[in-house]
């Protein structure tokens, strides 16, 4: 097994700042933005993006614009892996109607998590648009899904593993390819 660090702590911080700018630019401001992190690490990334937006746009209300979306019950591989932990979903506003929802996850791979997330979103309302922000896009999509905001495109082999470490959950902060 070999480990190769592809993003270090500073790279990750820069990627988050850039993504936060891109999100606001594409949205023409911060109005009606709602960041939804997908557990586990997407939740922390969404929070960091929200804090980064707040730095540049003091009017941005982090409390009202940041939530989490658990997609476990909407997965298509439930029957193979039924024992995933179900965690709370928190939508800060009552309904998603008229919101521009930005889903945030750490790694985009097959696209199946995002498909589940799109299904989950439907049960909370009808957003104006749904965007996707990921720290790493490693390719190998199995569904017609792509990310709008990408920290780093990482061409990988299917047999490799991508490990994302964040200070919130791990000792260090890095993105590592495991072969």
């Amino acid at each position: 097994m070999s480990l190769r660090t592809v993003l270090d702590a500073a790279d990750i911080d820069r990627a988050i700042i850039r993504i936060s700018h891109e999100i606001v630019e594409a949205n023409h401001g911060t109005e009606n933005l709602l960041l939804l992190g997908i557990p586990t690490r997407g939740v922390f990334l969404a929070k960091r993006i929200a804090n980064s937006i707040k730095k540049n746009y003091p009017d941005f209300d982090v409390e009202e614009s940041l939530g989490r979306l658990d997609v476990t019950m909407f997965r298509d591989d439930l029957s193979a892996k039924p024992n995933r932990e179900v965690t709370p979903t928190e939508i800060p506003v009552g309904s998603l109607d008229e919101k521009t929802v930005v889903l945030v996850d750490d790694v985009l791979f097959s696209g199946r998590t995002i498909r589940a997330a799109l299904d989950a979103i439907v049960s909370y309302g009808r957003p104006k648009a749904v965007r996707l922000a990921v720290l790493v896009d490693r390719g190998h999509r199995e569904l017609p899904i792509r990310a709008d905001y990408v920290g780093k495109n990482l061409p990988t082999s299917v047999t490799e593993r991508i490990n994302v470490h964040l200070t919130e959950t791990d000792e260090e902060q890095s993105v590592v390819i495991e072969q």
């Binding site: 019950m73 909407f74 439930l78 179900v86 965690t87 709370p88 049960s123 909370y124």
Partner: peptide, 19 residues
């Protein structure tokens, strides 16, 4: 704990999961 998550589903507008 799982029941507590299911309670949240029962408070939504769309009280349905595809599981």
């Amino acid at each position: 704990n799982l029941s507590a998550q299911m309670q949240e589903v029962n408070k939504r507008d769309v009280k349905k999961l595809p599981a």
